[in-house]
Design a protein around this nucleic acid. Structure first.
Lengths: 184, 184, 184, 184
DNA sequence: CATGAATGAGGGTTCATTCAT
DNA sequence: AATGAATGAACCCTCATTCAT
């Protein structure tokens, strides 16, 4: 049941990324030392440099490999036709909320890493665009009342994101009801 | 036109806080060194310690003295009776947006300073509560349609805050129109 | 009853020396900061430099002005003829002991200041020589038994000095009795 | 002939202690900087912290590991029966003198380190007690004339210690002859 | 006479990183 | 694959000292 050399290396790499994510989230990228991360992984700082070129590179890898933009995209571009928009929207925002919850540590790193600002902006922009597209399509089909879909998308996105950041839970159904009252 | 010693000291203190705010916002609290701040202020690092006990104390002073919660409260508790709710709301969110713009650096420090989490939560909570109170009052007077005022407040607040954070400008009038369409 | 300018200056100088002596004795010369001394004197560090050129100079002044070698010399060269040697010796060592007690702080500075080594050696050498001269004179007069007066002087001096340094009190009469038993 | 890692570490540790001992003795504990010590060891300051937690800890280690109290005890408690007390005493004080000479640097550190006062007092007290016990035993056996053995012990100890401290060499045989003249 | 704003050097210490083992 | 000895740069902070006020 021993691992092959290749597997062991892959496993260690992931373990280091896990440790880094946890430590970065807790102390901030600048506040966390390589030694902190190594200790969290039960390993020597030197070993880290066999897997990543630098602390900087470790952060970059974390943001690119562990980014949840792919999953967000997948979520928002699934085929929802045939089901009522309001129901879909509620479900969708709920899933988004859950996604953020699952990636709370990563979000913290996003906010902590100076160089992550661009990635964060990209994430937010893409998210808003995808939600906006969904709303526009439903308006075009006459299922939702005509409205400023771009602003609506931004508002919905923001509401979910901020509630995650500040800790107080958000009732997604109420949010949808607020913007689209009594809509079929 | 020379300054008295008292004035000079006061001025220097503010100058150091200004420099710290700028540098902290740009590099993060942990990423910015005392030397960075001193250089931004055109001063020796040692001088900083005549005005603040430590780097930590500098951050704390920044957050407590430069906090904009007082101005936010002032903004939201002003007497708006006699004017249409939608107009007031638009103006109010616009002012809030401007306030955040004016304090963009401070917001960044809030997000960077780990120990500021509590202050941040307080800020957000208070802001949402004040907006919620305003909405509820107007509903009671029959001027706004009955709705979930708490969720609405959170949504409005979030929309403004996130737009500030991500850089893309927000048309506040459109936001209000979205939630309260065609309301007189 | 106000002091003249001259008197005030003299008074302040002495006060600063007092404070320095106390602080140096407590923290060691290197361990004590100019700020420490100024605070002990209820004064600003800057003021210290109106009275002394540097911290270094302050130490030097302390060692030279407050040195007790003059008093020691006076003590040992007084005219003791006509009184029994053993009585004189006892009284003399007792006075020396008291002198060290009075100057405990200064002794501490001696041991703390690297540059004071020479002064300390001088002090010890002179003290031993003076006691030795006294013993030799009394041996010459047949009042004390012939013995190695130089070694005796060193031994007596050492016994008194070490007892001061280690805190346990010394019965001088017993010490004299030990070296010159039953001598008339 | 290369060292194993274990050996190298042990060797480096001792080397750092050696360097520290020398530098502390020369400049005093407060007067010596970590950089001074590192330079004396031909090493970077940072390395010091792999072997000792702090400068303070380095001093403590020096005092506890390099203390010569054990050797002193061994010296004074050896079995000297069957040999004339005066000869033994002479030899013993000579060995004590040599011990202090070997540990001159450590003595200097003792006097420089404020926190070493307790250790110093212990050292002195123990030394005097051991010598006193030896004298008392010999008096009881009738080999030495009855005398105040406690004071004698203190005097002998002090004479040796002070001569070490002030640099002038002491003829131990003369010292013994002084206190116990012509004794068989 | 006395203050306190300001500096430059240096304090002890941590850190990201390298490399022989 | 993993360690840990070693470095050099940077960290936060204190210090002795100066000088305008």
């Amino acid at each position: 049941m021993t691992k092959t050399r290749r597997e062991q290396a892959e496993w260690r790499r992931e373990q280091l990324l896990d440790a880094a994510l946890k430590v970065f989230a807790a102390k901030g990228v600048d506040g966390a030392s390589v030694k902190d991360i190594a200790e969290a992984a039960g390993v020597t700082p030197g070993l880290l440099y066999r897997y990543f070129e630098s602390k900087e590179a470790l952060v970059a890898t974390l943001l690119s490999e562990r980014g949840f933009l792919p999953r967000l995209r997948e979520l928002l571009t699934a085929d929802h036709r045939g089901r009522p928009a309001v129901a879909v929207l509620t479900e969708l925002l709920g899933a988004f909320d859950a996604l953020l919850a699952d990636n709370a540590d990563l979000m913290a790193v996003f906010f902590s890493a100076t160089q992550a600002r661009a990635a964060l902006a990209e994430l937010v922009g893409e998210g808003q665009r995808l939600i906006g597209d969904f709303l526009a399509a439903r308006v075009a089909e006459g299922e939702l009342r005509p409205h400023d879909t771009a602003t609506a998308a931004r508002t919905l996105f923001a509401a979910v994101a901020v509630s995650r950041r500040t800790g107080s839970p958000l009732d997604v159904a109420r949010l949808v009801e607020l913007l689209f009252p009594h809509e079929r």
